[in-house]
């Protein structure tokens, strides 16, 4: 077996195993850390797909940003002094039936469709091409996403500051 084959199965196992740990863990902090390993495994899968810039972005934005944000959310909303990090699972049987059904349907659709696969040449790095595309064909989505990020930051700051102002008014 080639090295890339072994690496693919290793990282697929890491991704799916820690995703399953995340879903089925009772402790929400354990779930957050399992999510970190899932995101890292997905980044490794991106590297195997010749998407080096996206892998770096995935590590920076997801592991460095969103995951820290989620951990802050966990810490700030833990209830009372008992620090109960337990999560309640409901609707276990319908939820597992639906998700198994979705998985079976998707895998069936993926495996029975006859994809037209074209072998592209191995890429060395994608940063230059992505930058040229971003400033060329994708300039409008690029600007729109910039405006979206600005609005999201302003909205998040507004909501959080109003929250602390209310707290001061009550106490």
């Amino acid at each position: 077996m080639e090295l890339t084959t072994i690496l693919f199965y290793l990282f697929a196992l890491v991704t799916l195993g820690s995703a399953a740990t995340m879903v089925f863990s009772k402790n929400i902090v354990h779930s957050a850390f399992a999510l970190m390993f899932t995101l890292m495994g997905v980044a490794a899968l991106y590297v195997l797909l010749y998407a080096d810039f996206l892998a770096a972005t995935q590590l920076l934005v997801y592991v460095g940003g969103i995951l820290i944000l989620i951990l802050f959310g966990v810490m700030l909303t833990s209830q009372g002094y008992t620090l109960s990090f337990k999560t309640i699972t409901v609707n276990l049987i319908p939820a597992s039936l639906i998700s198994v059904g979705i998985a079976a349907l998707l895998i069936f659709a993926f495996l029975t469709t006859d994809w037209t696969i074209s072998e592209v040449a191995e890429r060395t790095d994608t940063v230059y091409d992505l930058g040229m595309l971003l400033m060329g064909d994708y300039i409008l989505p690029f600007i729109a996403v910039g405006v979206l990020l600005l609005i999201a930051i302003i909205g998040a700051i507004l909501m959080s500051t109003r929250l602390s102002a209310e707290n001061e008014g009550v106490s």
Binding site: T87, N91, P94
Partner: peptide, 22 residues
């Protein structure tokens, strides 16, 4: 197939957890 399994695990988390962060 990996992405399909990941998707179904995400659907499982969305449907079966009662914690907003989960």
């Amino acid at each position: 197939v990996v992405s399909a399994l990941l998707f179904s695990l995400g659907v499982m988390a969305v449907l079966s957890k009662r914690n907003v962060i989960m």
